[in-house]
């Protein structure tokens, strides 16, 4: 968070003209005044991009923290725990993200959520000792609501990815681990999960890009991410609609493309030698 503050200061200290190599006039001359408008406001949009990226990361993280255990429960749990996880999953996967987000923003009392998070963190610190994490206090409510909505919806999908990956590991792996005296939990931890994580990369890749694109829906609760900021801009200069949206579409495209290539790289990097992925 400190890094971001520093970056913000940097961006305000330097006028746009100095950060960018081409002057506004030049852009206006060659591409017309609508592109000049986009160019003039590019750092406004770039800060929206930062919000978009941050929101994606926090949501994916929350989705992983909730989704991985949920997937494990669906794969190995029994009885009530599994039934409850499934019900929640159906609920979250069957409702539009827009409705979920409106819900977390208007209905869910953020104070109580933060309070619960605070208690959770304290109890973790009680067990593990001091952690570097604190409950955010100066983050906009819309950001928290959007993170909760995107995070838990993503958890519902990530749980399916992990459940499928865990279930796809041959039963013989578990038996072999048990046969050398490992407990069930040790076998899952050291044998099943490392293999399942590798197999869940393609699904995770897909999920990552979905969350990235769906951060745009935080527009509905007025969070100043990329799409909201572009909306602000083209309602200001209505002739520049196409230019503004093309510009942010390019940013989204670069982000999704970059994410996919990065995860491809990760997947190759950790691939098991000799196995075709």
């Amino acid at each position: 968070m400190e890094g971001i503050v520093a970056l913000t200061e940097l961006s305000t200290a330097l006028p746009a003209g100095q950060l960018l190599p081409v002057s506004e006039e030049q852009v206006g001359q060659y591409l017309g005044e609508d592109w000049e408008f986009v160019y003039r406001n590019s750092d406004y949009l770039l800060w929206g991009t930062v919000v978009t990226i941050l929101l994606t990361l926090t949501s994916i993280l929350l989705g992983f923290l909730a989704g991985f255990p949920a997937g494990a429960i669906e794969a190995y749990g029994s009885g009530y725990s599994r039934a409850i996880v499934r019900k929640f999953g159906v609920l979250l996967r069957g409702t539009p993200i827009l409705v979920i987000m409106i819900f977390t923003f208007f209905v869910l009392p953020i104070d109580i959520v933060l309070g619960a998070a605070e208690i959770g963190l304290r109890s973790i610190e009680f067990v593990l000792g001091p952690t570097p994490f604190t409950v955010p206090t100066d983050v906009p409510e819309a950001f928290i609501a959007a993170t909760i909505a995107l995070g838990f919806r993503s958890a519902a999908y990530q749980s399916q990815i992990f459940r499928g990956a865990l279930g796809s590991i041959d039963e013989g792996q578990m038996e072999a681990a048990r046969s050398i005296g490992m407990s069930r939990l040790e076998a899952i931890r050291h044998v099943i999960v490392p293999q399942a994580m590798r197999r869940s990369v393609p699904g995770f890749q897909n999920e990552f890009t979905i969350v990235l694109k769906d951060t745009s829906i935080a527009f509905a609760i007025g969070l100043g991410e990329l799409l909201k900021r572009s909306h602000d801009l083209f309602t200001q200069q209505t002739t520049a609609v196409l230019e503004v949206i093309l510009f942010i579409s390019l940013i989204y495209f670069v982000l999704t493309f970059g994410t996919n290539r990065t995860l491809d790289y990760v997947s190759n990097r950790f691939a098991i030698p000799g196995e075709s992925s």
Partner: peptide
């Protein structure tokens, strides 16, 4: 631990 087992489908840890 006292009784080792070798499987028909081998079951080496693939990773």
């Amino acid at each position: 631990q006292q009784i080792g087992m070798v499987f028909q489908d081998i079951n080496l840890f693939a990773h």
